[in-house]
Amino acid sequence: MIKREDKRGEADSPIFGTVIFTILNLAFFILLLTFVWRSANGAAVYEEIYAKQIALAIDKAKPGTQIVINVDKGLQIADKNRQPRSEIFKIDSDKGQVAVSLSEGKGGYEMSYFNNYGIITEINNEGNLIITVK
């Protein structure tokens, strides 16, 4: 007579419980780290950084200056968020305002510069924003 092995008790074994417990904890910390990483690389952080960087660079510049800022990371975020290149960096010379928006349909970040210069911006193929101060 073949005896059937009783497997009912295995699910309650200490090893099974420990494995489930470890997996759940790992999943929790991975989710938490993903949240931290996504927050650190989010559009809002880069919008504020670029807007302030551009405004202060214009404030420091003298007429005839050409400023080159690498915005590669911002362009990657904008592409992911389907934001057209022409809508990312907007400069209003009359009000002296720089607006940066890396997400389509969302506002972005705005910062003023106090100089009364004419400003021309252009994004080249190497991921640089070229600001010409007139």
Partner: peptide
Amino acid sequence: IIGAINMFFNANIDTRAYEASLLYDK
């Protein structure tokens, strides 16, 4: 952690001191 991250990344980067020094120079 969520609260701390939100506070950290939503905090304003205060550039007024540097801006004021640029305006003074100008």
